[in-house]
Amino acid sequence: MNLKPDTLKRIDEVIPHYPSKRSATLPLLHLIQEDAGYISPEAIEWIAAKLELEPINVYELVTFYPMFRQQPIGRRHIKVCRTLSCALMGGYKTCATFEKEFNTRAGPGEISPDGEVTVEFVECLASCGTAPVVMIDDELHEKVDAAKAKQLSDQIKAEAGQKKGASRP
């Protein structure tokens, strides 16, 4: 495993928070996913060895908890809330706007053709009073109607364009 020094440091800090090493599985999965983008078979083996578990003990968590993924996703992760309060305020249209803007389908395994985004339709994000809500990476966006979804999409595209421009020799 090729983990960043900071990730390794944080892994060693978190394990002693628990009287049983196994409790650190979820925190380790989070740290490694943040570092590597997803959970590879190698990562599962690595965590198991680190916490003195069998790989299946780790693997069964990866398949149970929706936030963990086993393949890479787009550069930006757009999570649109699907649940009732957001749906009542137009969440389905919000999701459809992102799908259209990036020519993709909502789904955990989908990546837009330009590799820029993965759009996911997720369950209640606990901000129902400002529905419809969207999380882009770690950032919550409130009252995202179709028009605001278009704006956010344009912004993401502009930022992507800038990055491309900057990396050109």
């Binding site: 409790s23 968590l61 908890y65 929706p66 369950e123």
Partner: peptide, 20 residues
């Protein structure tokens, strides 16, 4: 990590023990 059932206190406890 995104599972509603972790709010149920005994599900939560299992989760905190590093299990499903």
């Amino acid at each position: 990590a995104g599972a509603y059932i972790c709010g149920e206190e005994t599900g939560l406890i299992e989760s905190l023990e590093g299990k499903r």
